[in-house]
Design a protein around this nucleic acid. Structure first.
Lengths: 188, 188
DNA sequence: GTCTATAATTCGATAGAC
DNA sequence: GTCTATCGAATTATAGAC
């Protein structure tokens, strides 16, 4: 198999396994097994577990930026774009109930491990924060835009943790409705 | 040393280490080292790592119930008691910025490990949920009490995850202020 | 590029002396 | 109740054949 294709398969498998079972709990053997590769050959593509994590975060950053561009193309108003973010806990409710938020849970885990890649993972949050801030700046005072962005991020993380803990779909829907009402008070 | 005192020391050390570094990342050697015990002697007190986790959760449940009783003794109104919960992210802001919420991060980790003790950890959330529900039932319709309790829990988890990710103390204060305003609209 | 074999370490857990 | 010694399995990572 071409090295590039194998590398992409490894990153995709690691991404999924890190999300489902956590970074530390996922071993090389798990990733190799998921791709159908021997452990030995693994080191031809990635020289360390940290290197895989780095590649996974890069891939998630690229995916996130692609998603945000798509939202900008599909939703015509800033409030509509913010709602796309808010509704992500509804769109991904099945995964969120099983595994929590991919960004939040990775950041939480890396913080406890005092892992060198924690700063890299923080960039995932930062991409959403910057994008939300830009949307809020279009419908209200620029001084408030960042704290409103942080409020929306905190909403998504709170819902994700509780939905994961209680596996309660109705709860997610109620919190999204509550957030929609809140957003309407800011909507231009 | 008396077995009871040693056991309590082990539970206290494990509690702290599980919170700071996570359950899986904490080894027997870490706990034994913190208590000043040899690895071998460890198994006289606990026969498995799961048994320690069980004891840690029991200790946290007892601590939580004690704290809630104290809040009931100190705050005369239901809204005042709910505010005590909301302000916990401010009271414990140093630990929360470093390690997140002890309940939320443990539950998140155990869910990913598909650990048998996940249900036990869920009881920690349930204790807060039940208590908050009771407080809300005293100031409004009983049908809404549980979803308001869940909303407050989600608030605390969202703030904890974001405060841990960005280490932003001003953010915590702003979110608490926002929540205080929200609570006043329900206050009797 | 992929494999087998294996080194070096750490893990949870046990046995048995004192 | 505490210790040392150790087991067996799993971990990350390397070496070298093909």
């Amino acid at each position: 198999m071409a090295a590039v294709a194998t590398r992409e398969q490894i990153v995709a498998a690691a991404d999924r396994l890190f999300y489902h079972h956590g970074y530390e709990h996922t071993s090389f053997a798990d990733i190799a097994g998921a791709v159908g590769l021997s452990r030995g050959n693994f080191y031809y593509h990635f020289k360390s577990k940290d290197a895989i994590l780095d590649a996974v975060i890069d891939a998630r950053l690229a995916d996130t930026r692609r998603m945000l561009e798509q939202w900008e193309a599909e939703a015509s108003t800033p409030a509509g774009r913010i709602m796309r973010y808010i509704e992500i806990v509804l769109t991904n409710r099945a995964d969120i109930q099983d595994y929590g938020c991919p960004v939040g849970t990775l950041t939480t885990e890396l913080a406890k491990l005092e892992h060198a890649m924690l700063g890299q993972a923080g960039r995932l949050f930062a991409v959403f924060r910057t994008w939300l801030r830009e949307q809020f700046a279009l419908i209200g005072p620029a001084e408030q835009a960042d704290e409103l962005a942080m409020h929306v991020l905190a909403f998504s993380q709170g819902v994700a943790v509780m939905a994961n803990a209680f596996r309660d779909e109705a709860f997610i829907q109620r919190e999204v409705d509550r957030m929609r009402d809140w957003l309407h008070t800011y909507e231009k």
